[in-house]
Design a protein around this nucleic acid. Structure first.
Length: 224
DNA sequence: ATGACGATTTACT
DNA sequence: GTAAATCGTCATA
């Protein structure tokens, strides 16, 4: 089994950490010992007090966001839209409220169990293709059974939630784009703080697509 | 105490 | 493309 990521790996600025997280493997161990795992293919960086899109904008420090202030390598799991959970990994040092939002995984282990987790809440019980299992921040938390109960967990020491070493992704394969769902953040909405592995089919943006499209369209969107 | 609003996903026209 | 689902959190009072 690959080695687990240590504190040192996480203790970096959120942009550097976000790019380093690409290719690493997120592991969720259920109470019955089942391992659910996926390779990180898309991450967003949130820069803390200066970042209008961050939950900790202007130094906000409430009960909900306290995990963002923990030392690097802790989980910040929040509940939103009345039904979804999203998972972040705290960056920098204790007291610095920066984090990386995990936006998409490439499913690796026990994908059948992930499929059950995902379809359980679906109105129509139609079969999901692999690219719809973990291709979004709320999709992957549902697939890996990550909820607010895991908020504040230390990913360096936890037996329930941690990361394993994967291959570093070369800069040439990393695309930087604007973050999703933060249009309210003015100029901060346009900054290139979302990172994903180029061409990876499990990235959220591609998976959302419903209909086939012309190759020219695909190229134009990739260039974004 | 109350009102407005999501770092989203799904289904439908 | 648009809209519904659904409720914890936060700012205001």
């Amino acid at each position: 089994m690959p080695p687990r990521l240590t504190r040192k790996f996480f203790r970096r600025d959120p942009v550097t950490l976000a790019k380093a997280l690409l290719g690493q493997v997120l592991v969720r161990v259920l109470d019955d010992g089942t391992r659910l795992a996926g390779r990180i293919v898309e991450v967003e960086a949130y820069l803390g007090a200066v970042d209008a899109a961050a939950h900790t904008y202007r130094g906000r420090n409430t009960e909900r966001v306290r995990s963002m202030y923990l030392d690097a390598g802790h989980a910040y799991v929040y509940f939103t839209y009345g039904m979804h959970h999203c998972m972040n990994i705290s960056a920098d040092a204790a007291g610095v409220p920066t984090a990386c939002l995990i936006r998409a995984l490439e499913p690796l282990e026990n994908t059948d169990k992930m499929h059950v987790n995902r379809t359980a809440t679906l109105a129509s019980l139609r079969t999901l293709v692999d690219t719809l299992l973990c291709s979004g921040p709320a999709r992957l938390t549902e697939a890996l059974a990550i909820s607010r109960k895991l908020d504040g967990v230390d990913l360096v020491t936890s037996e329930q939630l941690f990361l394993e070493r994967g291959p570093a992704i070369p800069e040439a394969q990393i695309v930087a784009a604007r973050r999703i769902g933060v249009d309210y953040a003015g100029p901060w909405a346009r900054k290139p703080l979302r990172f994903y592995i180029t061409g990876n089919p499990h990235v959220s943006r591609f998976a959302v697509r419903r209909r086939p499209h012309k190759p020219s369209t695909r190229l134009a969107r990739c260039a974004l």
